[in-house]
Simulated assay, not measured.
Amino acid sequence: MGIGSVSPGVAGVLGFLAGTIGARAVAEIGTGTGVSGLALLDAMAPEGVLTSIDSEPEHQGAARTVFTAAGHANRRARLIAGAALQVLPKLSDGAYDLVFVDGDPLEYVEYVEQGLRLLRPGGLLVLHHALAGGRVADESNEDDEVVIIREALAAVKESEELSPVLLPLGDGLLVARRA
């Protein structure tokens, strides 16, 4: 479909994290073709529900096919077509165990704000592409996407409510636990 998916390592860590915290409610920003969503669904509590947001309905159709083929009931994946920054404010505060961010990098700062609002205490915020192909570490790189990702990483680091760790998996995976 012309889009990249998370690496097997990132999918493995997502599943590990969801399983470790016994996730029952997960929000995903960027459905893609369902690779990350499937990793999350496979590891979540059996009654858990994945809420996945994507602006491309055809991506969600592909993801639904993947979830169904893997044996997950339709009720376990709530797929919402729309712009993430319009949908996220409608989701309930403190209702999610894990929020996975794999959407538009130019909106990462807002995703961090929304993710923090959505997470329950002890919940996890996970940002994909946190290293932006190594470009984040290059201080001379002033591309918009890189600058915004740096700002999002700084917001996580400076938050008194989040304890982060940066994992060198895929394109960088930032995991932060909410106090």
Rank of each mutant, 00 (worst) to 15 (best):
L106W: 05
R178L: 14
K157F: 08
V101R: 07
R135G: 10
A154G: 07
G30Q: 12
F16I: 06
E145C: 13
L88W: 11
G30L: 13
L14Y: 03
D93V: 09
G115L: 07
G61W: 00
T51Y: 05
T51R: 03
V66D: 03
P89I: 04
E161V: 11
I148C: 02
A176Y: 11
G19I: 02
V147S: 12
V10P: 05
E47D: 15
A95R: 05
A25L: 00
D171T: 11
G94M: 01
D102V: 10
V112M: 07
L85H: 04
A27C: 12
L118C: 08
L17N: 00
V101E: 02
D104P: 09
V136L: 01
G170L: 10
V6I: 14
E110H: 15
K90V: 11
E110M: 11
S55I: 14
A11F: 04
L85P: 03
G115S: 15
L41I: 03
G170Q: 09
A63D: 09
L14Q: 01
V13W: 04
S159A: 10
F16H: 13
L106V: 09
G172N: 08
E151Y: 07
G22F: 03
A77P: 00
V26F: 04
L14M: 02
E28N: 08
V6F: 05
L17K: 01
G103D: 09
P168D: 06
R117Q: 09
A39H: 10
P105I: 05
